[in-house]
């Protein structure tokens, strides 16, 4: 007690020796953290930069820089295997994206902004199930299931792969749509009903336009996720159904070539573009 009193009486240390301007005690700073952060950034981007750099290197070596050239890109564009795989990847991704986004939008409408109802936790559980099971498990389970169906019905085709992609795309599409709906003011829809709009017109004129950025964001994620998938495609795809990642992994088994750098760079660029778009949409929310 007495100590506390004397301390109050002594002049405040900071006041007697003022710290240099703008260099006061920063409560948020922790020493060394900034260094680690910059290091992480370097670690995350350096390998990708190397990949991009050597994709425009006019040399078979993927280590020694000679001079700039687009030649590997030309080879990629003229490579039939890559063309094929790209078209297939896009086909699968587009269909999976459309179906998953539509289905996720509907589900999001029915699982937000209501009082908790019986069965709601189960519905959440089901929709998020693909996120909770390791990819390899989903892959072998889906493979077994499809094998059984193929055996029973004799039907084959790209449909299986698309269906498998749709399943794991749904929770990714669902996340931003649901987030958007939960941010949305319920009274807007009530205001619309109050102003003589039928439920359908309320959806079309109020709910849907406000939800659109969320739907785009969800579609974007679904598309990226489908495009990127390796494990499930690898196990589920039938013969001749190589998506781009499957094609790449197959080529890598035979050795690292500059064409792989070029095709990877293109892939990277597409992903970054889509994610940037997603970021912009997510910020449009505010």
């Amino acid at each position: 007690m007495a100590d506390a009193v004397t301390q109050v009486d002594t002049p405040v240390r900071g006041a007697s020796s003022p710290s240099p301007k703008g260099r006061g005690f920063d409560v948020k700073r922790l020493p060394g953290f900034a260094t680690v952060a910059w290091m992480c950034l370097l670690v995350l981007y350096a390998p990708m930069l190397v990949l991009v750099l050597f994709s425009v290197n006019d040399n078979r070596s993927v280590t020694i820089w000679t001079k700039f050239s687009w030649r590997w890109y030309e080879e990629v564009i003229n490579n039939e295997g890559i063309q094929h795989a790209t078209v297939l990847s896009l086909k699968v991704a587009v269909v999976a994206m459309v179906v998953a986004t539509a289905v996720a939008t509907m589900a999001a409408l029915a699982t937000t902004r209501t009082r908790a109802y019986r069965g709601l936790p189960v519905v959440y559980g089901i929709i998020n199930q693909p996120l909770m099971v390791p990819e390899i498990v989903t892959a072998v389970a889906t493979l077994s299931f499809f094998a059984l169906i193929k055996q029973a019905t004799g039907v084959t085709g790209l449909g299986y792969l698309i269906l498998a992609h749709t399943v794991f795309c749904i929770p990714f599409a669902y996340m931003p749509i649901r987030a958007r709906l939960e941010d949305m003011d319920l009274t807007l829809e009530q205001a619309s009903a109050d102003l003589y709009a039928t439920p359908w017109r309320t959806f079309r004129r109020v709910t849907f336009p406000l939800l659109l950025p969320g739907i785009f964001a969800g579609a974007m994620l679904a598309f990226v996720i489908s495009l990127d998938d390796v494990v499930i495609s690898l196990l589920v795809a039938g013969p001749g159904e190589s998506t781009l990642p499957i094609y790449i992994i197959g080529q890598l088994r035979r050795g690292v070539t500059p064409e792989m750098n070029a095709v990877s760079t293109i892939f990277l660029a597409v992903s970054i573009l889509l994610v940037t778009f997603f970021f912009v949409l997510a910020r449009a929310r505010k």
């Binding site: 990708m48 792989m260 990877s264 990277l268 940037t276």
Partner: peptide
């Protein structure tokens, strides 16, 4: 944004990039 980009970019391609760096003839 910079941390999110690798989060969503293809794991296969990022692993390939590491491969380029740690190979015998790598960087």
């Amino acid at each position: 944004f910079l941390v999110t980009i690798p989060f969503w970019t293809n794991l296969l391609i990022r692993t390939f990039a590491i491969m380029l760096i740690v190979r015998d003839e790598g960087l």
